[in-house]
Amino acid sequence: MKEKKKEKVHLRDKRKVISLINVNKSYTTKEKEIKVLSNINVDFYSGTFYAIMGHSGSGKSTLINILGLLDIPSSGNYILFGNDIRKHNDIELSLMRMKNFGFIFQNYCLNNNLKAYENVMVPMVINKSINAHSRKKKAISLLEQLGLKERIDHFPTKLSGGEQQRVAIARALANNPDIILADEPTGNLDTETEKVIFELLKTLSKNGKCIIVVSHSELVKKYADYVYTIENNFLVGESCK
């Protein structure tokens, strides 16, 4: 009872951002249908840090791609801020992605031909609410907040792994999205840097963002509010701190 009360208190002040209802995902090859995700039912709230774990090939990245509107479920409902995404076309989904999501990848996925602040500015270019004059200022401010004041003009190839990932985090925050999706953000980093990144993400969740991290690392459990595991195509093992 006490635990349930704690859960209610925990979620009461938070906003439901994503609901997956009976979501399935499968791929069809010439020979057969391959099921990746089965009957996924889960809600995600703002101000919460979620970890999704599972062995390699379990469908973690598929799930996060669906969450980030990079892929669509084979069946089931995806409700984003109360909107069923099936009602929207590609252009509208792109707009929703721009406004609501920030992405962080294992390989950082920075453009090596753009400087750090230019990489952060990329998502802002298509955001009409940010005018051209304030883009650079905002990008620099984000980088400074992430401890990269001295690296603003550096190209990614001149940055360490941890620095590159922080630039990627700054880029993910460029349009001030409510949801941050991170697919193995510390996969290429050492333990110390891993801690730094998870600390940053935790801080963001405390500031109200919904953080969803796919990770192999056991360290993520220390920071996550909820840990899910994908086993045999199902999402299992919700745990609560």
């Binding site: 590609d90 252009i91 721009m98 406004k99 990329v122 298509i126 349009n175």
Partner: peptide, 16 residues
Amino acid sequence: ERNIGILRVCGYLEKD
């Protein structure tokens, strides 16, 4: 390709 993918992830349309 990857840079193009990142643009699309950020919300850039195909025509952009």
